[in-house]
Nucleic acid binder design. Structure first.
Lengths: 226, 226
DNA sequence: CAATCATGTTATCGATCGATAAATGACGGC
DNA sequence: GCCGTCATTTATCGATCGATAACATGATTG
């Protein structure tokens, strides 16, 4: 049946009839499309629908991935690991600039990655599925982002000792507020009109003033760096 | 087969062998258990597993609900509608008390409802499923909670005109931060150790000071109420 | 041009899904 | 104590799921 009617074989088009891609290229295409597919429809969607979207047959997926779960693991890796920018940690630690500047730039870059439909939805799907990768990711956010922010804020105020747990919690509060703004935008389709940059500016200011107030009850700094 | 071995009919126990509950009572039990079941396993879980948890057979569900989607709709209603407390709106508008007090009490009561495993997970599952009920719920939060908060803050400062969109956005930021704290607690199992009350107190203070700063650039109030 | 091998498809299995029809059995009214 | 009503179970249907085996085909190489 299929193939009997050649459905207008456009000679100009790349003639991408239906076959023969090199292994690596095909695999990359599978993962890239699987990200969007699972982000949109959830991980419980069928491999047949994914194959249909890819324009191949379903068993072909199993030539590239041993099981559906292995494909999903590749999706996780592509989204979580490969979109994390190590330069963020460098940026946050750059004491030649005021911390407020660094935070504004960081959250602009961070939201550019995270405030996307596939990142957000895959994060939420994975979280509800109970996979450990989300917990590890939040550990990364704490250790590489939030704790450094608190430390930088203390350093800018002339304090050198360790962070208190309350400060870390407050940084989580603002960070979570920013993140949830992305959830509202991307998952619920709200807040499109409002400006991300303005939201970030207000959030950064609230974070810094909140951290400052939180340090008010502490003893005066013994060493002033500047 | 079943019934041939009475599997130790404990005479002391309520002898809940396997049958005959009045219709209304059975229906309520189904919905109550379906909330926990779907919250834990997602809405794509099978009706057979739900029936097993309930100790009944799967077709019995279809005598009480026309379809699985109808049962899910009942779950939504039970979680979203019936756990919303109208007195929250009264509390927030009670101008005999300082706004900070009202906010601290409100968020303590609100998180008592929302920071539960089934509420949180059903909210997130429903959001990813794309059902409109979540969008309507967030409209409720804005109109009954956040906009009133902004209005109360302006009133306490002696302003009487309408809210600006930036203030509403900032209220969403802090509210989202509180909500996301619940996600971390309930969904990801983090932050159990830290105190919810302390987090709320810091969040309320940040919200009020943030709103105050946001009004700083505006013209002076023409009418002072007190 | 024929042999080879990796890519891709066809066909199909066993399990599980939501849902329906028919049989069963517990309980109250008489 | 029988009887009918209605809650509940047994049995089953058609669709869909992940996965596997067997077959087909295009490209490469000698």
């Amino acid at each position: 049946m299929i193939g009997a009617m050649p459905e207008v074989p456009s000679d100009t088009a790349p003639k991408e009839r239906r076959k023969r891609l090199p292994s690596g290229e095909r695999r990359r295409e599978f993962i890239a499309q699987a990200i969007e597919f699972f982000a949109e429809n959830g991980f419980e969607s069928s491999t047949r629908d994914l194959a249909k979207r890819l324009g191949v047959t379903q068993p072909l997926l199993y030539r590239y991935f041993p099981s559906k779960d292995d494909l999903i693991a590749e999706v996780y890796s592509a989204v979580y690991v490969k979109r994390w920018k190590p330069e963020w940690e460098v940026l946050l630690a750059d004491r030649t600039r005021p911390l407020a500047d660094r935070l504004r730039q960081f959250y602009r870059e961070y939201t550019e990655v995270v405030f996307t439909r596939d990142w957000m939805r895959i994060f939420l799907f994975a979280g509800l599925k109970g996979v450990d990768i989300n917990i590890r990711y939040m550990g990364l956010v704490r250790s590489r982002i939030l704790d450094p922010i608190v430390a930088e804020a203390r350093a800018e105020a002339g304090l050198v000792d360790a962070n208190g747990p309350a400060e870390s919690d407050f940084a989580w509060l603002i960070h979570g507020g920013i993140f949830y703004n992305g959830v509202r935008r991307v998952v619920y389709g709200e807040a499109d009109a409002t400006d991300v940059g303005a939201m970030i500016d207000n959030a950064v200011e609230a974070m810094l003033t909140g951290l400052e107030k939180m340090r008010a009850g502490e003893p005066a700094p013994k060493v002033r760096s500047l």
